[in-house]
Design a protein around this nucleic acid. Sequence first.
DNA 1: TTGTATGCAAATAATTTGCACCAAA
DNA 2: TTTGGTGCAAATTATTTGCATACAA
Lengths: 167, 167
Amino acid sequence: MPTSSESFEPLDVSLSPQERFEEYLQTRGLRQTSQRKFLIEAVFQEHDHFDADELIDRLPRRGEKNYVSSATVYRTLREFVDAGLLKSFQLDGRTVYELDYGYPQHDHLYCTRCRKLFEFQSESLMQLRDEVAHEKGFRVSGHRMIIQGVCRDCTKNRRKKRKQDLV
Amino acid sequence: MPTSSESFEPLDVSLSPQERFEEYLQTRGLRQTSQRKFLIEAVFQEHDHFDADELIDRLPRRGEKNYVSSATVYRTLREFVDAGLLKSFQLDGRTVYELDYGYPQHDHLYCTRCRKLFEFQSESLMQLRDEVAHEKGFRVSGHRMIIQGVCRDCTKNRRKKRKQDLV
DNA sequence: TTGTATGCAAATAATTTGCACCAAA
DNA sequence: TTTGGTGCAAATTATTTGCATACAA
């Protein structure tokens, strides 16, 4: 099943992210640089959500081998999103990225205590979305649903702390 | 019906936003200043979504009567959110505000062409949210759902333009 | 060769903050 | 009189951009 809700032809999942990106570059007459190759590796090793800053932190520093300037990191992240490899959204003011290519559509729960993101899938949500959009005469291209709250662990820990406080 | 999904006692809707804010200030030992009074008027005259910049644009300029510095506008907007008068969320990188106090819970459709926000209400969405959260062991405090797409008008205009282009 | 990509540093944009002065309670 | 509030300007933060140079095709 295609990952993107907008593709008209099924995604060729036999392509690796790298190959998919090459294709993207070639069809637009863009170049395959060492930085782009290195970054796609780095990004697809990550399995969690991340922002530009976190990514840069894990990358080689100025002077080290494979160093990539922040400007290029920002530029390349945007290209990855254009190419359909990543998705991005805003959270607490910063831009958060997550893998898209090859990953199933999902939405998020956000724990406001530990600031972690959790994922969930819901077919009903998609249906609801399309119904609402249809009613309002909208041509849907996507959506973003984030449920805020406190996750199980944080609820537990808070309880634990409260008990300790009583001792 | 209470506007906030978190209130344990029903909201006293007989209070005006102004009165509600006074209450908020008093319970915290904060002060009722002329700036705060002026801003609450200005904000509750607005019936649409707005960001800090748009609000500041509509306010008196430096030197004019009732001028309020941007710093104070930013500070006060955050207080209004704390007080439950406004809600805020991120869109395209900027912080968008909307009236909350006295307004029913709703979510948004966002037209990526004209950048307008439209509202919709859905009880099913709330149920779905609570179910998902419960499954994941989340204690829900809120959510944010935005459906992106192209609104009816923009779809029409685009068609019109296409036709014109053919002439 | 030829134009795209990169690195660097400066520029932005949207907020936030430090601080001296002002003013509610 | 006391402590919170405001205006101003400087500081932040996250990101983008201009430009000279480097390099893929």
